[in-house]
Write a protein that binds this DNA or RNA. Structure first.
Lengths: 341, 341
DNA sequence: TACTCCCACTAGAGCGCGCTAGTAGAGCGC
DNA sequence: GCGCTCTACTAGCGCGCTCTAGTGGGAGTA
């Protein structure tokens, strides 16, 4: 049990109780050479007894470096959750600590990043940042910065993302091969990767000679957006306009919303309409038939992000780098041949 | 732009450039009396120019207290996201900083809490902790600890949760009033609140004279669990056992999984079967018809948790407290009268 | 003038640690 | 004996900040 004296024990306490100097305790706790095995064990035993726990604030102050990576994420994004899960182990492997800072209502990106910086993070890993390139560039001048999921060609920072274009192309080829011609895209608005996805969708439609069918419905990367689009399409059907035979959603969340709206109205997927998502987040496994989607490998992205940050920290002046990962179409149950085929 | 000299500017730099002492800069940044308005502005201006940012590690070391609350959460729980969103503003209001530490695969609760402690958090707010009461009790001896969403009567720590029993009772009364008799409960396993929910379900069934229909399907608080149960019920129907007319899921995620499985099989909700969730997380608004569920007010819970932590920090030895919030049934589209009615 | 009071400001001692420079002692070769 | 190396350990400064105990000087009072 702890001393009732409240005060959290310090190295000096351990040192005294173990009959050694403070410096030696420090050596032991840093796993540095310079202490005998016997002493090590004694020190650790004493430390455990009095409940000593190194104070990272002091540690961080004393050594110049904090060896801490800051991660900004959005609390409601399942894909961010996947990324965070990947970041922890890789950071630990490289001997870095991780600090999370969430954006939320009333807590914008600026605030979240400020928090990271004031906690002396050596690098900021931003998951799907929404800030303007100029701001990111400025941040990049201040500290090592990595953007995950969003390309920021205008800022001199590292970034990790998938080859959005390729992913969309694969999805489109898949749909067209199945016989679809009337394929609608739900746009992701300002969401990371949206611009590239939209562009690739347009290109694919043209390449397949389907310009006349091209249609982009405005939206964003939320379930609500999918529901809205679903309701829109259903309402249009009421008025005589047939449903498209396939929808390429902005991401999985959007696809899920769409599926809800459609299934609810008795539309059968994929018999009546095919739906393709993007991300391959946990969501996509939810349905028994599974969501056809484009996989972004969260773990790999996380590893790249951490490695970029660490390498830049240890190497000072590299040029900004960009990791472009290969996306991969994962065909599951929500895509099939169109009704007529 | 920053000095190319790399070094992050310190108070001393600001002091020198502004022609004042370090102490005065400190006063200005702490918004303490003792500096003229004029000087304040000059100091802040200089600080901004050279990009000074207080170093919270040093600050934290220097003043005895860190004024930081640590929050342990699970990265994939939407309800935790809601809670985190509520914690930030309340903590800020009370002048506390927030540090997040996620549990994830390969990063258990112990590790997550260790991280918080070594960062000198003064309190640990645990969202849906899974640890044994004895462990929580031990933690509570070490540091101010609040358990959110889970009662821990055996540990001397504060806790915030809803009156699970009341919530379930409301839901059950609602279903019975609608005419349901054959109501199945999907259990939440070791999830927070599960035991109380299960118990309340049993009690309600008995109270309504439905013991013979009582059925608890084992599960947990994930979508997968809902899907499994859905498939199970559907398979049973194949073998001649009729579907229950209503299902009380362990939480919203589970309810969503169940809905997926059922809807997919052509079962209409609520015509063929009613489904009730628990939490009223973001998920419940997803479907156009909305999920009938029991609301736990995340914002209120978050506020209580923060306040408990802070009050205990500022008051030393209070007795462990327990906030039991009133749950509230939110009737939306997934519940209705059973088929025969 | 001499006194007090207050305001704006400063000096300097830590906070708990990391780290460099150093020491004491043992072992070894010659 | 001497010098050398190696291991096991210690002294003490400094990281960037907070905070207590001051200092100096101008206004107010008698």
């Amino acid at each position: 049990m702890d001393v009732p004296g409240k005060q959290r024990p310090t190295m000096a306490d351990v040192a005294e109780k173990a009959g050694v100097s403070r410096a030696l305790v420090s050596i032991v706790f840093r796993h540095q050479p310079g202490a005998s095995q016997e002493t090590r064990e004694r020190v650790l035993k004493v430390a455990d007894e009095i409940g000593y726990r190194p104070d990272s604030a002091a540690r961080l102050l004393a050594r110049g470096r904090s060896r801490t990576l800051g991660v900004m994420f959005t609390v409601h994004q399942p894909f961010h959750a996947d990324l965070v899960e990947g970041i922890y182990p890789e950071a630990e492997r490289l001997g870095y600590d991780v600090l999370l800072s969430a954006t939320a209502e009333g807590r914008g990106e600026t605030k979240a990043v400020e928090a990271l910086l004031s906690h002396r993070c050596e690098a900021a890993i931003l998951l799907g940042p929404d800030a303007a390139p100029a701001e990111l560039d400025a941040l990049g001048q201040r500290t090592v910065t990595v953007s995950v999921g969003r390309r920021v060609p205008l800022a001199r920072i590292d970034s990790v993302h998938t080859a959005e274009g390729k992913g969309i192309r694969q999805a489109m080829d898949h749909l067209v091969e199945l016989g679809h011609r009337h394929i609608v895209h739900i746009d992701g608005g300002r969401g990371p990767g949206s611009a590239e996805r939209r562009r690739a969708y347009r290109a694919a439609m043209r390449r397949h000679g389907l310009e006349s069918e091209l249609r982009v419905v405005p939206g964003d990367h939320t379930e609500a957006s999918g529901i809205e689009t679903g309701d829109l399409l259903l309402a249009e059907r009421e008025r005589g306009r047939p449903l498209p035979t396939a929808v390429l959603a902005g991401n999985d969340r959007c696809a899920m919303g769409l599926l809800m709206a459609l299934t609810r109205a008795g539309v059968e997927v994929p018999r009546d309409i095919s739906v393709v998502g993007y991300d391959d987040s946990h969501l996509s496994h939810l349905m028994p038939i599974g969501l056809t989607t484009v996989r972004q490998d969260a773990v790999l992205m996380a590893e790249y992000a951490v490695r970029f940050a660490v390498e830049r920290l240890e190497n000072e002046k590299l040029d900004p780098r960009e990791a472009v990962l290969e996306p991969k179409l994962v065909v599951r149950g929500t895509s099939g041949p169109p009704r007529g085929a």
